[in-house]
Nucleic acid binder design. Structure first.
Lengths: 191, 191
DNA sequence: AACGAATGGTTACAATTGAAACTATATCCC
DNA sequence: GGGATATAGTTTCAATTGTAACCATTCGTT
C-alpha cells in the first residue's frame, strides 16, 4: 500500500527534504515550507495564545522544581503541597488541606497516605467529630520541610531574577487579577 | 481502636471544634487555630509562591476552555493543539508538530490517531523519506477549526479583559522573559 | 429517637499519561 | 555493499489521575 496514495498530500515542491535544525528559526531566508498559509490567514497562533503559553510555562517550571525534590526527598507535587500547607497551618483536616492546595479530596487522601507511610505526617481524629482527621507534620516531616522549602524558594528566586523588582511586583498583581477573572469565568459558567 | 490514640495530636485546646467557614479569612479576630505557627515562621506560603500560582491559574484556564471544545466538538487538548498548528502550518510531520506544540511524540501519535479516526486530519507519507508522515487538516478539520478558534480567542479575550491594554502588553513581555528563564534553568540543569 | 440528607474520607474502576521497548526506514562510514 | 547508528513513529506496560460509588458519622427534621 505504498503505491500511489501519498501524492495528493505530498504536494508542495521541496517540502519533504531539508530541515535539519530542530527549532526552525523564522526568517532564515527560505520560507517555502509554509507557503500554503499566509501568516495572519489563520486567526490563532499558538505561540501567541496566552492560555497555551501559561500552560507551557507552568509545566516547565513545575517539572523543573518537582524533579528536584522528587529526586532528593522522594516527594511528589501533591505531597509537597500538603507539607507546605501543614507547615504553616498544623492540625488541618483533609478537606481543609484540599481547599488550601487547590487539590480535590481524593488527591489529598492519596498523598496523605504516602506521607503517613513515609512517617512525615501524623494523623489523629477529631474527638467531637470522628470523621474529621487532624493532620500535622511529624518531627521528621518538619525536618524535611525545612530543607525542601529553601530549595523551592531558591528556584522561585532564580526564575524571578529574570525580572526587575518592579516587574516582579507587576507579575504578582497580574497573576492575582487573572486568577480572579478565571474564577469568575468559571463561576459564571457553572451558574 | 478509638480508645486513646488521638490525644497526643488533638492537643491544642479548642482546636477540634469550631470552623464552619471554608476560607478562614485572615484577621477575623479570633486567630487561635493557627496558634502554633506564627505567620512568617514558615518561610514559604503557598498562596504567594509563584510556581504554585502559575500552576493553579493555568489549570483553571485550561480546564475552562478545554471543557468547552470537548463538549462541543469532542476535542481533547492535544488534539486541539495539533489542529491549531496544522491550520497554520500544513504538511508538518509528527515530530515537527511535537516541536511546535510542546508535546512529546507519543502524545502526538495518540492525538493524531484520534484525529485520523474522526477524519479531521489526513496523513500521507513523504516520498523521499518513507518514515516521515505528512499531516494536514481535512476539509472537515478546517471547518471545525474555523469554528473552534474564535471560541478559543473569545475565552482569551474575556480573560485578558481583566487587564488594561498596557497590562496586557506587560503580561506578554513577562511571559516571554519567564519562559526564556525557565528554559535556561532547565538547560543548565541538563548540562 | 429515628429517618433522610449532608459531610469526611476511602476505595474501585476507567481513562490519561509517561517511559521504555520496538519496527521500519534512513544515514554514516568503512 | 554492509554493518553500526540515528531518526520517525507506534506499541506496550506501569504509574498517575479522574469519576463515581461507597462506608461511616453527623446533622436536620420531625
Amino acid at each position: 500500500m505504498t503505491g500511489s496514495k501519498e501524492k495528493d498530500l505530498a504536494a508542495a515542491p521541496g517540502t519533504s527534504r531539508a530541515q535539519k535544525d530542530a527549532t526552525v528559526a523564522p526568517g532564515t531566508g527560505r520560507a517555502q515550507k509554509d507557503a500554503a498559509v499566509e501568516p495572519g490567514d489563520s486567526p490563532l497562533h499558538l505561540d501567541r495564545f496566552i492560555p497555551y503559553r501559561l500552560s507551557v510555562l507552568s509545566n516547565t517550571i513545575s517539572m523543573l522544581i518537582a524533579s528536584a525534590y522528587e529526586r532528593e526527598f522522594g516527594l511528589s507535587i501533591p505531597q509537597w503541597r500538603i507539607m507546605a500547607v501543614l507547615a504553616r497551618y498544623p492540625d488541618l483536616s483533609a478537606v481543609e488541606v484540599a481547599e488550601r492546595t487547590a487539590m480535590d479530596k481524593v488527591a489529598v487522601s492519596r498523598a496523605v497516605q504516602g506521607l503517613l507511610s513515609s512517617k512525615r505526617v501524623l494523623r489523629a481524629y477529631d474527638k467531637g467529630d470522628r470523621r474529621r482527621s487532624i493532620l500535622r507534620l511529624s518531627a521528621a516531616g518538619q525536618a524535611v520541610y525545612t530543607r525542601v522549602s529553601p530549595m523551592a524558594l531558591r528556584y522561585e528566586q532564580e526564575l524571578l531574577s529574570a525580572l526587575s523588582p518592579a516587574d516582579q511586583r507587576t507579575l504578582d498583581r497580574l497573576l492575582t487579577r487573572l486568577m480572579d477573572q478565571a474564577q469568575s469565568m468559571q463561576a459564571s459558567r457553572d451558574s
